[in-house]
């Protein structure tokens, strides 16, 4: 069970990193993610079938996500459409684009080598074989996290954080707040599409409906992570988001293994989610009393 949770949690952790940028840093409710997640998956699936090395398809998936973010950003900043709406517009359009890219609603890649099943993974000794998938996912997630951490420390990253917190700082530095937002959306959706591509490689099929509810899962992960570890100042928010994602998937897995009725699954997940949030708050209160 732990292995399954870690695999799923780490993949969705990449997604949480993306949402961390839009929701937490830019304060932008970006609905594009519900479509950029399957976009990354579609690109990865189709290119894998055409014989491209799976690792490269991840990069192409990321690029496609960045383009999706660029479009949302362009609609919002240049066409002056409200944030929520510009995300909805891109999300709607991408639904058709995703179907066009994939050619059909479900593209299996069972027949070809994937990132997690290649000559390389087959050559590994048996004891590591079971863990090779989770190790590879961990490496990808860590790479994404470290690169994002590094980026946030650069001048551009600083501007990005300023754009969400205090927009006038950006303007004072005579930088265009709009282009900073667009860059943020591009990075965020690139990460989301990367998550979709990794998911596709792991589950070995693309399905047009795999994006449904992505935004909710990502948001829940970010909120769980950042709430639970609010007082852990040494911990980076990127780490919090990834751990939040693992906890969220843990909740879902728990609800499944408790043998919940299918109809009650979402309710149980919501209750567990709430419990974690409340636990996080109780801890915060206590700290305040001590202070």
């Amino acid at each position: 069970m732990i292995l399954g949770i870690l695999e799923q949690g780490l993949i969705y952790g990449i997604l949480a990193l993306g949402l961390l940028i839009t929701y937490r840093i830019l304060d932008f409710p970006d609905l594009t993610v519900d479509s950029s997640f399957p976009l990354g998956a579609a690109v990865s699936a189709v290119l894998t079938l055409q014989g491209m090395p799976p690792a490269l398809t991840l990069l192409c998936g990321m690029l496609s996500g960045a383009v999706a973010g660029l479009i949302t950003g362009f609609i919002h900043v240049k066409c002056k459409v409200r944030d929520l709406l510009s995300g909805i517009i891109t999300m709607t359009a991408l639904y058709s684009i995703n179907l066009r890219i994939a050619g059909k609603a479900n593209v299996p890649i069972f027949g070809t080598d994937t990132l997690f099943r290649s000559e390389f993974t087959r050559a590994l000794p048996a004891w590591i074989g079971d863990y090779s998938t989770v190790i590879l996912i961990l490496l990808i997630t860590l790479a994404a996290k470290l690169l994002l951490d590094l980026f946030l420390k650069t001048k551009a990253g600083y501007l990005l954080r300023a754009a969400g917190d205090n927009a006038s700082v950006v303007t004072t530095l005579s930088k265009d707040q709009g282009s900073v937002k667009i860059v943020g959306l591009m990075i965020a959706n690139a990460l989301v599409a990367l998550a979709g591509a990794v998911m596709c490689q792991q589950q070995r099929f693309f399905d047009i409906s795999m994006g449904t509810g992505t935004m909710v899962i990502g948001l829940a992960s970010v909120i769980i992570g950042t709430n639970l570890f609010k007082n852990f100042s040494f911990m980076k928010s990127t780490t919090m988001a990834i751990i939040g994602s693992i906890l969220y998937k843990g909740c879902v897995s728990l609800a499944i293994s408790l043998g919940m009725e299918a109809t009650d699954m979402k309710l149980i997940t919501a209750v567990l989610f709430l419990l974690i949030l409340v636990a996080g708050q109780a801890k915060r209160k206590k700290v305040r009393i001590h202070a």
């Binding site: 069970m1 292995l3 399954g4 695999e7 998911m199 409906s209 897995s253 499944i256 293994s257 043998g259």
Partner: peptide, 23 residues
């Protein structure tokens, strides 16, 4: 029988499969 319903959610279907196989 261990009957599980994914409620048309691909991610949940995947988690159910992993639970039924590994756990």
């Amino acid at each position: 029988f261990n009957v599980q319903n994914a409620q048309a959610d691909i991610a949940i279907a995947s988690q159910i499969a992993s639970t039924l196989v590994d756990v």
